[in-house]
Design a protein around this nucleic acid. Structure first.
Lengths: 201, 201
DNA sequence: CTCTTATTATAGGGATCCCTATTTAATTTA
DNA sequence: TAAATTAAATAGGGATCCCTATAATAAGAG
């Protein structure tokens, strides 16, 4: 009998690589080495399996970066490490490129609207997590009280989404980190770059 | 007989909204009011039609913003207007949300790899267009000679991709422009924000 | 060993996928 | 008007979609 976590691990890999619409139940059963009825008895439906695969993947991929945010590091350094960790996640050697959630199901057939709603909610939750850390920074005096933490969170959210897209298109880890370094110069109060130099980091 | 441009306009709308894998040839023929053989005689195949729809849409949506880049405006202001125009394109009232190209076919079934390669190439071309404008800015003395224009272009490319994703998730025009304003503070030599204030723009 | 209970595999239902061979209708040419 | 040409519609082929009813097998209980 197939172990549930092993099955989810395989589902994560396929959905991550091919997306929800690009992955068929035949792909899934074949990769898991099971027959359709087993898949449906274990996971309910394709959509239910996707939901469980997302949860499974998020629990595994985001724990470190959430600890970084929750730590007592200065907010700027926490953000830096947070983004670097995401860049690493986007370019893991033996895993699909990009992020399973950041750029998933943006376009979709009408019948998959509920799936799209699901990934959109996960992205919004991610933005809110960032915003909460920035709000904490205000409370702790690290950011001016009137800081627009919502825009700040959505800005770095956009960077995260852009990194995922570019990783899917083949960008390497170093390229993503150069992108992060530039994005960090938009941090309030940080020294604006007099110049963005190439190659000499 | 169906006018070719009318057909392409309908195809653009469907592919833009639902993506390549989320749009069926039955959707297309039904929306165009034609029968399958007519579609195939006019456009060749689903993939060929997608290619033509991309070209058709790009020609229509990007002409203004390319003129802005080609103009003799200072590079910073050209970039600002360029990004604003994209934000407008991401949130047009009677069109699908986001950009048809920026976040298209990032995940896909194996059999659609050639389609993904197609959109990836369009995104790369878009980055190179931005980079070329920044290189021109170096030549004209608007940027320091050693500026890493590649990273700069990919950074604003990431912003463009993030805006498309967030527009798909429901972000309004004003929210995207707040995001742009923040991203522009990463421009070399620009005044770093002492604070990012909310609401008082 | 027999019977009950799980578990797995087979087979397939009904719909849809992309695409095309063939038929019907409309139009043009002689 | 008759023949030739063009356009459109029907019908369907072969594959795949998600999912499930049924049959076969294996394991446990009496």
């Amino acid at each position: 009998m197939l172990d549930r976590d092993v099955g989810l691990d395989i589902a994560v890999r396929l959905f991550w690589e091919r997306g929800y619409e690009g992955t068929s139940t035949a792909d899934l059963t074949k990769a898991m080495g099971i027959n359709p009825p087993t898949l449906y008895s274990m996971f309910g439906s394709k959509e239910e399996l996707y939901r469980q695969a997302l949860d499974f993947s998020i629990a595994r991929e985001t724990s470190r970066r959430l600890e970084i945010l929750a730590s007592d590091l200065p907010v700027y350094e926490a953000l830096t490490l947070f983004l670097y960790d995401i860049a690493d996640g986007d370019t893991q050697p033996d895993k699909p490129r990009g992020c399973m959630v950041s750029t998933a199901v943006l376009q979709h057939a009408e019948e998959n609207a509920s799936v799209a709603q699901m990934t959109a909610a996960l992205r919004e939750a991610s933005v809110q997590t960032l915003k909460a850390r920035f709000d904490r920074a205000i409370e702790e005096g690290e950011l001016p009280p009137q800081t627009d933490t919502d825009t700040l969170a959505r800005f770095y959210g956009a960077i995260i989404q852009g990194m995922s897209a570019q990783a899917c298109d083949g960008a390497c880890n170093a390229r993503l980190k150069r992108l992060i370094d530039l994005a960090l110069t938009a941090w309030p109060g940080s020294a604006a770059p007099r110049a963005v130099r190439r190659g000499d980091t």
